[in-house]
């Protein structure tokens, strides 16, 4: 066993990168669920975002344009879900699962010409002297801009939900859509916008995998991250900062266990492999002891006539 081979700076930097796709997807889904909609299509939107972002980045030579395309791709796909669940009043669970299957198939089709291509690289943000601060600099100030967008997104979502009128309306729609409707709020429009926001975030998370974390296009490359994000929202009790904690905890322990394996630590590999799931769940369950309830209208179909 040789723990000296583990570079803590690289480990922390890697955990931030590993957490970012989950963070984007989970933050987007948090908004969707706070609006009272359960979208199980996160995985499908992520993988479509992954190929849209990758393809457009390759074609334009700009990763930033790629990320914008990923957000647009995820949002467009989520519109299909919005149409099914908000207009035709289809079952949300079935529609979400269908969206995932559709997204996986569509991405495979779109991605056939992009296998084995190296995407353009997104340069790290130049923080100047901040990046030279011992220990903190390389960990916090040496990443790509999208990682910081993810952190800003969490803060923005938290502030919006807590301090703004828009956030209050969104929460009202999620808690009791009939009451919100009675007050004159356009429930379907609000939920559709929330669904699109969730789709855009999921798309960005998918593109982060294909453009930065791996970086390549491979069919099915999200490999279940969308489901992790979905679970995270529930275990985080629909609170943005807990989503951040959960994503970083999951990403961090995933990275740590790989590092510990490489270092030959005398902990059975089976325990190391299951630790990201186990520890994340345990920590978030302990934190959610405050009995934070799910949004009252979560998953319920809204009938304007009722």
């Amino acid at each position: 066993m040789d723990l000296s081979v583990i570079n803590p700076i690289l480990l922390f930097a890697a955990l931030m990168s590993a957490a970012t796709p989950i963070l984007f997807a989970a933050t987007g889904e948090l908004i969707v669920e706070r609006a009272g909609v359960l979208n199980l299509g996160v995985e499908g939107m992520m993988i479509v975002g992954a190929i849209c972002g990758f393809a457009i980045a390759v074609e334009t030579g700009s990763p930033i344009v790629g990320f914008l395309a990923a957000a647009a791709g995820g949002a467009l796909l989520s519109l299909l879900f919005a149409f099914l669940t908000q207009i035709t009043l289809a079952n949300q669970v079935a529609s979400g699962l269908a969206l995932t299957l559709f997204g996986l198939g569509l991405s495979a089709l779109l991605g056939q010409g992009y296998v084995g291509i190296k995407p353009p690289r997104l340069p790290d943000v130049n923080f100047g002297f901040l990046a030279d601060i011992p220990l903190i600099g390389p960990i916090v100030f040496s990443h790509d801009p999208i990682l910081y967008v993810g952190l800003i997104l969490v803060a923005a979502v938290w502030a919006t939900l807590k301090f703004t009128r828009a956030g209050l309306i969104l929460r009202a729609v999620g808690e009791n859509h009939d009451a919100a409707h009675a007050l004159g709020y356009k429930v379907v429009r609000i939920r559709t916008l929330a669904i699109m926001f969730g789709g855009a975030c999921a798309g960005m998370g998918g593109a982060y995998i294909s453009l930065i974390r791996v970086p390549q296009w491979t069919e099915g490359m999200t490999a279940g991250v969308g489901w992790i994000a979905l679970a995270l929202v529930v275990f985080a009790s629909w609170k943005p900062w807990r989503v951040l904690l959960g994503a970083y905890l999951f990403g961090g322990i995933t990275q740590l266990q790989l590092n510990l394996q490489g270092a030959g630590v005398a902990i059975p590999v089976e325990y190391l492999a299951m630790s990201p799931y186990l520890i994340t769940i345990v920590v978030l369950v302990i934190l959610s002891a405050d009995k934070s309830a799910a949004p009252g209208s979560l998953g319920r179909t809204f009938h304007a006539s009722s």
Partner: peptide, 26 residues
């Protein structure tokens, strides 16, 4: 030999992470 078990047949992100860890460790 440094062996890292990914406990998956197919997970590109995890496979890339495993490769990066091995490379970082020499």
């Amino acid at each position: 030999f440094k062996i890292v078990w990914a406990y998956t047949w197919f997970d590109p992100a995890k496979e890339a992470d495993a490769a990066k860890v091995l490379i970082e460790q020499g």
